[in-house]
Simulated assay, not measured.
Amino acid sequence: MEREAWCEGCGVTLQTVDPDKPGYVPASALERENVICRRCFRIRHYNEIATVEHDSDAYLSLLAEIAKTKALVVQVVDLFDIAGSWIPGIHRHIGGNPLLILANKVDLFPQSVKRQRLKEWVDRMAKELGVKPVDVVLTSAAKGFRLREVADAIERYRDGEDVFIVGTANVGKSTLINRLVQRFGAGDDAVTTSPYPGTTLDAISIPLEGGQRIVDMPGIIRKDRISEWIPPRELSAAIPDSEVKPKVYQLNEGQTLFFGGLARFDFVTGPKQPFVCYAANSLYIHRTKREKADEMWERHRGGLLSPPSDPSLLPPMKRHTFHLKGETKQDLVVSGLGWVTTGSQKSIVDVWAPEGVQVHLRPAII
């Protein structure tokens, strides 16, 4: 190659030597005005996904560069998985720059849930994590919900400076950016999007009027989210893409719920009570007796209990035991999958998830 160039879809440096490495394009493609790599071309035109090894340390180094400039930092989080989509130590990476939080995927929540309550919940959680955002805006990039409010907030808080948009993989960051650049008049479909984590490989700079820019930073891969372990072709069966319909189960002591072949919920001891499941509507939830659960798991995981169709792709399952006081309703969260809202009576439950995936208890969000 005679000149260094970058893919306008994912930000990776283009190369014409090795078709198996990121950034490959045929040499003739460099003559085009807008050049994208072969991977982005296949994603855009054939919805084909090619996985790429990601270097989290390199991503964090890119993030640290933000502290050296004056800019507005916009962190996009997945409202359906706040803890799993938060960038750990974000306040240490951005220096003294202001932080605006965009809570994406609000469309997944039932219409009955008050949006103001969700906003206050995100703001409270951010402060518990050591961050005082200038504002929190709820949005849905996929549905185009509240985009004008998002654009107005960015314009107000950036004060004429550059905008860096950051987030973990698969929070809808690139989809949101494409919506924003259209609103700011900076072009159409500037960034390649797909449902698979890690589509953006390097920082992508999109010019704005006045010489400033929107910079799409690559998504940080968090392996403690179960969604990062699911094969691309099976993501749609496990990741919600429309308003979630809660599923209520009146469980007796000694009953089990299987969430496909991804997670397991055991009601160990306690009086009969309701447990409400919030997960993708397409995810198969199966109830059985706990005494039969081990046998069923071994026989049907990868078949009846799927995704995944190939359980060997996931780490071994690990049990997490919770002693619930029953004073208030709480959420048992499996990061990247969803949560179970517990009953209001004292009980003991076990949650099984792939080893390394974050499982935690929080005050009920709904």
Results as ranks from 00 to 15, higher is better:
5 A>I: 07
10 C>A: 05
10 C>L: 00
15 Q>N: 08
17 V>D: 14
22 P>A: 03
23 G>A: 06
23 G>H: 07
25 V>M: 04
25 V>Q: 03
31 E>L: 12
33 E>T: 11
33 E>D: 14
34 N>L: 10
34 N>I: 12
38 R>H: 11
42 R>F: 10
42 R>V: 07
50 A>Q: 12
53 E>R: 13
58 A>L: 12
60 L>R: 15
67 A>T: 02
72 L>A: 07
73 V>T: 13
75 Q>F: 01
76 V>H: 02
77 V>A: 04
80 F>M: 09
82 I>K: 00
84 G>Q: 05
85 S>C: 03
90 I>A: 08
93 H>Y: 15
96 G>L: 05
97 N>P: 01
98 P>G: 10
100 L>W: 05
100 L>R: 04
100 L>H: 06
104 N>F: 01
106 V>R: 12
109 F>Y: 11
111 Q>M: 09
113 V>Y: 09
113 V>A: 09
116 Q>V: 11
119 K>A: 14
119 K>W: 07
120 E>R: 14
124 R>G: 06
126 A>M: 13
127 K>C: 08
132 K>Q: 12
139 T>V: 12
141 A>F: 02
150 V>E: 09
159 D>L: 13
161 E>I: 00
161 E>Y: 10
165 I>S: 02
165 I>F: 02
168 T>D: 00
175 T>N: 05
176 L>S: 08
180 L>F: 03
182 Q>R: 14
190 A>N: 04
194 S>L: 02
203 A>F: 02
205 S>K: 12
206 I>W: 01
207 P>E: 01
209 E>S: 13
211 G>S: 06
220 I>E: 08
223 K>G: 00
226 I>F: 04
228 E>C: 08
233 R>P: 00
236 S>H: 13
236 S>L: 08
239 I>H: 03
243 E>L: 04
244 V>S: 09
246 P>W: 05
247 K>W: 10
251 L>H: 04
256 T>K: 05
260 G>E: 03
260 G>F: 10
262 L>V: 01
266 D>T: 07
268 V>I: 15
271 P>M: 02
272 K>L: 04
272 K>V: 09
277 C>H: 02
277 C>M: 03
277 C>F: 07
283 L>T: 03
284 Y>N: 10
284 Y>D: 07
286 H>Y: 15
286 H>R: 12
286 H>C: 06
287 R>Q: 15
294 D>M: 08
297 W>T: 04
306 S>K: 15
311 P>T: 05
316 P>A: 09
318 K>A: 14
319 R>G: 00
324 L>I: 12
333 V>K: 01
336 G>H: 07
340 V>S: 03
341 T>A: 10
343 G>Y: 05
344 S>V: 10
347 S>C: 14
348 I>E: 13
351 V>Q: 01
352 W>L: 13
354 P>Q: 05
356 G>R: 01
